[in-house]
């Protein structure tokens, strides 16, 4: 819950109000990453709280502990996926997808009575993996430094008289105010003695 809800912060009465919204700085890939992050939280909580149900549905009865561990992994990858460091979260989701597929492939064995469920789950994970790959590629592309060309600003001193001629220029008419002084000298600290 946002802190603003619990503290009852409200905008002041006279402040400007939105009449019409403009386009957002959020890109499509940002929104996809955000959706995948929330999906991770939902799946992770389900795996943590109902590993037995998932294991029975997929014919993986002996792997409740592993499913619970995967739940923790999903939550751990959700955090960066929902943060500004989305590529890290999406990369960890892709690695997780590979683990999920490997585990599900063991449920596709001919003797598994829940093989059909496992096949559906396998297909769903492949679909989510594709979404993760697309989101990862687009987020990396849109958040990188590669756009445009790298410029050199070595002609921008900001000191019209040049750095060397500017050194100490302010000392002609500026002293550090007394309340900002951090340094003194022994001469300042030792009281003058009478001659």
């Amino acid at each position: 819950m946002p802190i603003t809800n619990t503290t009852q912060i409200a905008r002041s009465k006279g402040d400007p109000r939105i009449v019409r919204k403009g386009p957002s700085s959020l890109t499509g890939s940002d929104r996809l990453a955000r959706a995948l992050g929330w999906f991770s939280i939902g799946l992770g909580l389900t795996e943590l709280m109902a590993p037995g149900f998932i294991a029975r549905t997929l014919g993986l009865e002996s792997k409740e502990g592993l499913i619970r561990a995967y739940g923790a992994r999903e939550l751990a990858s959700a955090v960066p996926t929902l943060s500004v460091d989305k590529p890290v979260g999406l990369a960890s989701r892709i690695a997780g997808d590979v683990l999920d597929l490997a585990t599900l492939s063991s449920a596709l064995r001919p003797g598994n009575a829940k093989r059909d469920n496992a096949a559906i789950a396998f297909a769903l994970v492949i679909g989510v993996t594709l979404l993760d790959l697309v989101a990862f590629a687009e987020v990396k592309a849109s958040h990188g430094r590669e756009r445009g060309t790298q410029r050199d600003y070595s002609d921008r001193s900001g000191l019209p008289r040049g750095p060397q001629a500017s050194r100490g220029l302010a000392r002609r008419d500026f002293d550090t105010p007394p309340d900002y002084r951090a340094e003194g000298s022994v001469a300042d600290a030792v009281p003058a003695t009478a001659p």
Binding site: I18, G22, S25
Partner: peptide, 24 residues
């Protein structure tokens, strides 16, 4: 008027908003 408005994390928009008024 136009203004850059905060809508949430990473979500800034150039919105149309009401003009400010003298309040004090």
């Amino acid at each position: 008027m136009r203004a850059l408005v905060w809508h949430g994390k990473e979500d800034i928009r150039c919105d149309s908003v009401t003009d400010p008024q003298i309040e004090d």
